[in-house]
Simulated assay, not measured.
Amino acid sequence: MKIGLQLGYWGAQPPTRAQELVDAAEAAGFDAVFAAESWGSDAFTPLAWWGSGTERVRLGTSVAQLSARTPTSCAMHALTLDHLSGGRAILGLGVSGPQVVEGWYGQPFAKPLARTREYVSIVRQVLAREAPVVNPGPHYPLPYDGPGSTGLGKPLKPITHPLRADIPIWLGAEGPKNVAMTAEIADGWLAIYYSPRLAPLYDKWLDEGFARAGARRSRDDFEIAATCQVIVTDDTAAAVAALKPVTALYVGGMGAPELNFHAQVYSRMGYEREVEEIGRLFRDGRKDEAAAVVPDEMVTETMIIGDADEVRAGVRRWEDAGVTMLLVNCHDADQVRQIVDIVR
């Protein structure tokens, strides 16, 4: 089982111990370090800054939002980070949701699967550098010839030769169609709220993608990186209680009432009634009550919490379910080392 460090995205201020965590992850044998973005900090700059002192860990975005950059701009970011890190970049991409895409980036959210497929295709063209990049659209036409066009657009190749033409592209995906497409066109799946209990269902979605004509990978060389809180404690109840507000936030507050992908994930697990109640309370501003509705199982099903032996058993369970990397949050260097000692 590989281990990745998730730095996440920043809150009101930059984190104060990120460099300590990255250095500890490098020293302890973590496979990768990831950074995220929402509508504050970006995903690439922290990797370049805090990763500059590393030599071994891979540096990945988990995830860079499609609507934040054009495909060619995103390819430039990945190309640059890959050169600076000596070939250690992982480009993790995701569509985000309509509240962010339309409310923050001012872009249409419609047809997220088609947009993702087209976006990835353009990024791969840039990195391959075999010919000037062209794309007929409809989402990212190159050269642009729509309203306001001068008609002077010229197909271009990147000036800088990519260090690697095959920088791994991993996709954040939650629904069945998106997971199947991820298996078809990507090199890895960034899974959130993964439940080992649902592994047979995930396998069905993944196998559909692997079986499609032209699929890039097979199960043998496809990575599944699952975000997972790993907490070693003798007081499991207290740890679970502390995580319930976070679960309630993502189920009730990180998405529109009409379309919340995180809520849909938990509904597929069988928590439809709880999801509905959490969403209602959260929208009414009753966040503490929303957290109280979250059952213990809704937390423990997607996280590994317990004493050292229980955590080891949990890691084996996730590995048996097909996960190749646990993507974990850590508070300090001691926790980084503790997780490695127990998992390895």
Rank of each mutant, 00 (worst) to 15 (best):
D307M: 05
E174L: 15
A290H: 12
D341N: 05
F261W: 15
V240Y: 04
S73D: 08
I224E: 06
A32W: 06
P168H: 04
G4N: 11
W104L: 09
L327G: 02
A291N: 10
D203A: 15
V230Q: 01
E272Q: 13
A27T: 07
V33C: 05
A173N: 07
L326H: 03
A78G: 07
E289H: 01
A199N: 03
D23F: 04
E258Q: 07
L259W: 11
A241Y: 02
K244N: 10
P176V: 07
N329Q: 14
D42C: 05
E20S: 14
T324C: 13
G87E: 11
V275K: 01
L171Q: 12
G314L: 05
E208S: 14
A211N: 13
C330R: 08
K287D: 07
F44R: 01
D203M: 11
G8C: 04
T72A: 14
V101E: 10
G252T: 10
D23C: 06
R164N: 14
P15W: 11
T45P: 02
P71W: 12
A180C: 08
R17L: 03
G4E: 09
T247I: 15
K154I: 14
H331S: 12
A18Q: 09
A321D: 11
G106A: 10
S62A: 15
G137S: 03
D234T: 12
R212M: 10
D23M: 08
R337K: 15
S67P: 07
A225E: 08
S73V: 09
I231G: 00
V246I: 14
G306L: 02
V328S: 01
R216Q: 14
I231D: 00
L156A: 12
R344I: 00
L84W: 13
L259A: 14
A263K: 08
A199Q: 01
Q107E: 12
L79F: 00
Q264D: 15
E274Y: 10
P158Y: 05
A183T: 06
D334V: 00
S67C: 08
A64L: 09
L113W: 08
V328K: 01
A237M: 03
R212L: 13
E55K: 15
A64Y: 05
T150C: 01
L206E: 02
G103F: 10
I192G: 03
P168V: 12
A110F: 09
P136C: 10
S62K: 06
F282C: 03
S67W: 11
E258F: 08
V299C: 09
D23H: 09
I169R: 00
S218T: 15
R344L: 08
Y266C: 05
